[in-house]
Amino acid sequence: MLVLLPPSEGKASSGRGAPLKTESLSLPGLTPAREAVLGELVELCAGDEEKAREVLGLSEGLRGEVAKNAELRSAGARPAGEIYTGVLYDALDLASLDAAAKKRATRSLLVFSGLWGAVRINDRIPSYRCSMGVKLPGIGALGAYWRTPMAAVLPEAAGDGLVLDLRSSAYAAAWKPKGEVAGRTASVRVLHAPTRKVVSHFNKATKGRIVRSLLAAGAAPKGPAELVEALRELGYVVEVEPPKGAGKAWMLDVLVDEIH
Rank of each mutant, 00 (worst) to 15 (best):
L2T: 13
V3Q: 09
L4T: 08
L5Q: 10
P7T: 09
G10S: 14
A18V: 13
S24N: 13
A33N: 02
E35V: 03
L38G: 04
E40P: 02
L41G: 01
E43D: 14
C45S: 11
C45N: 08
C45A: 08
E49V: 15
E54T: 15
V55E: 11
L56V: 05
L56G: 04
G61L: 10
E65S: 09
V66A: 11
K68L: 14
N69E: 09
A75D: 10
R78S: 12
I83N: 07
V87P: 01
D90L: 06
S96Q: 04
S96N: 03
L97G: 02
A99G: 10
K102R: 15
F112D: 01
G114Q: 12
L115C: 01
W116N: 04
W116L: 15
D123Q: 03
D123K: 03
P126L: 08
P126H: 06
P126T: 00
Y128N: 01
S131D: 11
G133A: 13
G138M: 12
G138F: 08
G140H: 09
G143S: 08
T148Y: 00
A152L: 13
V153L: 04
E156M: 05
G159I: 01
D165N: 08
D165G: 04
L166G: 03
S168V: 02
K176N: 08
K176W: 01
P177M: 14
P177A: 15
G179R: 11
A182P: 01
A186D: 00
S187H: 10
V188F: 05
V190E: 06
V190S: 05
L191N: 05
L191D: 11
V198H: 05
N203P: 02
K204G: 02
G208E: 11
L214R: 09
L215A: 12
L215F: 06
A219D: 10
A225M: 12
A225T: 14
E226I: 07
R232C: 05
R232I: 11
R232S: 10
R232W: 07
L234A: 12
G235H: 07
V240I: 07
V240H: 03
P242I: 12
P243A: 13
P243C: 07
K248V: 14
W250G: 06
W250A: 09
L252S: 05
D257W: 10
D257H: 07
H260K: 14
